[in-house]
Amino acid sequence: MSPYEDLIIDHWRNPRNKGTLEAPDVDVTEANVPCGDVVRLQLRVRDGAVEDVRFDGRGCAISMAAASLLTEMIKGKKLEELQGMRQEDILDALGGVIKPRLNCALLSYRTLRKALDSLGARERIRGQKAGAEEKT
């Protein structure tokens, strides 16, 4: 019996890009509090693209498989491409997810959004600082 897609079982048993990065540019954690699922996502960014990525965490097979799959989907991608990524993209990549488990499937997507927000905020601050320096 394996109503979970083989892809999910595969990523659950053999997670890709699992672990931590040294000196990541962004390091964020998100959780589904009621079920105890946690995903930590680290990105290293070079020339506006994801040079390397790691995830860590604990939780159900769907949340962990989705996180593993997500790291594969975003590695090497430009940040602006990732900004345009929609939650349907990860759900489709997972081969569809039943309604009660959408939160599990989308935990890593929410973590990615948080990472992008955090990077964006940093860029803005850097931009403001650069602007301020130009003025002086």
């Binding site: 019996m1 979970y4 079920c35 159900c60 097979a61 769907i62 949340s63 009660p100």
Partner: peptide, 14 residues
């Protein structure tokens, strides 16, 4: 090592 939600989902399939 198995999350309860996975157990419930798989049993639901039966």
């Amino acid at each position: 090592g198995v999350h309860p939600h996975d157990v419930a989902t798989l049993l639901d399939q039966e």
